[in-house]
Nucleic acid binder design. Structure first.
Lengths: 230, 230
DNA sequence: GTCAAAATGAACTGGCCAGTTCAATCTATC
DNA sequence: GATAGATTGAACTGGCCAGTTCATTTTGAC
């Protein structure tokens, strides 16, 4: 309706469904569940209102599909970021900084942030969604990360008793400043600030978990000086 | 209305205002801003609807007052918890565990959690509230905590370059498991689990920031064994 | 006891929205 | 080009709710 000529919604396709979910994703993320209007979603999808009810039952069902979609996308992004995890621990700190930066970028990603906001907002109305998203997303990422950390520990580069906990703490250290920096994902993040936060998180992580190098001076952790901008 | 006999709302007092804010706090926390109904708030406060509009302008104004109230309470609780921070660093780990547990209890507190949920949910509608609450709450706590940490560092018990960052990371390590454990504050937390999470956070914090004691055996940190359930 | 200010309740307005209905139109396929 | 199924627009129902009005009652102070 808003632009009847654009080929983005080819009017009559069976992928109306995708258009609907995409539009619903945007509108829910923008306005929240309660304030989102089906009419607005229909308009934004370039679709008639009854079509929505044909494809996906009602508002609640639509919302569940949307959350599942965002969760799947965010999870895929995060797991992809973990692929860059160092197996070769030459210059472990730099590798961790790199993978940490990718994880942090996943964290401040617009859709990830929207997902977190929606979960917080609607946990009263949809208590089950929280556990479902947790299981399908962060828990998998934590497991994957824990496996990578365990390999490094096993090879002697890190000293870790509980890899799951270490993985959670790694993420916690990486992301603790990000909500404030991005205003819960509603404003863009300065890449430099993001990198500084990541470097700080990796630094503390290595302080806690790096195995001291074989040289007889384990008291001063290796390569920490150049990572502190101020 | 619901209980016309109770002396909690003495009908006709000027503290109607407090009753209104209290009820609004509960209803907003329970239902969110959009779904909360002024009629319900009025009923729950034992007050007529026009009274709400007399005391506090409209729904939006009421919401802002409510958030200010929760933020102030949570902040006060947190700062009080920080009073127990160790100045005497005998058995630093145990002291940090204690103060960490109090901080974690503040974090999972019903009102703190509700505040976080409401901020996440309504940051689109009330973008200013996020920064306001941040400034009035967590930032003050971080400053206070940083001061305490700096004293310990200055006395040689911790090795900290940036106390503010260390304070943020301390809190991040303490709280990283809590949202999942408490389902964003919507279900009670097992005190044992809470303590275990705190002990784990403090352990990693000390690994990263504790200055090694003068004794020659710093590798096995004291009192860590009993804190690992699995 | 009197009186003014505050509180009450009940009704009312205007607006928004989920979900439905239906006749007309489009689309793909054969 | 005929047909079945999807799509459309538009109107409609029923419900919820913010905010207002007003005549009546309650309250506290004097």
């Amino acid at each position: 309706m808003t632009d009847g000529e654009t080929p983005t919604t080819p009017r009559g396709r069976l992928d109306k469904r995708q258009a609907i979910i995409g539009a619903a994703l945007r509108v829910f993320a923008r306005e929240g569940y309660g304030q989102a209007s089906i009419d607005v979603i229909a308009a934004e999808a370039g679709v008639a209102k009854p079509t929505i009810y044909n494809h996906l039952g009602g508002k609640e069902n639509l919302f569940r599909h949307v959350l599942a979609e965002i969760a799947a996308r965010s999870n895929a992004k995060t797991l992809a970021a973990l692929q860059t995890f160092p197996t070769d621990p030459q210059d472990l700190r730099n590798h961790l900084n790199t993978v940490g930066l990718r994880l942090a970028e996943c964290f401040v990603d617009e859709q990830s942030s929207a997902l977190r906001r929606l979960l917080h907002a609607e946990i009263g109305r949809f208590p089950d969604l929280f556990d479902a998203v947790l299981a399908s997303g962060p828990n998998q990422a934590t497991e994957a990360l824990a496996g990578r950390l365990a390999r490094l520990a096993n090879a002697g580069y890190l000293t870790i008793e509980d890899p799951i906990r270490a993985a959670r703490q790694f993420v916690a250290l990486l992301t603790d400043e990000l909500p404030a920096m991005s205003a819960l994902g509603t404003r863009p993040v300065d890449p430099d600030e993001l990198e500084r936060a990541v470097v700080a998180g990796v630094d503390t992580f290595l302080r806690a978990f790096a195995t001291p190098p074989p040289e007889p001076r384990p008291r001063t952790a290796a390569g920490r000086a150049e990572s502190l901008p101020r």
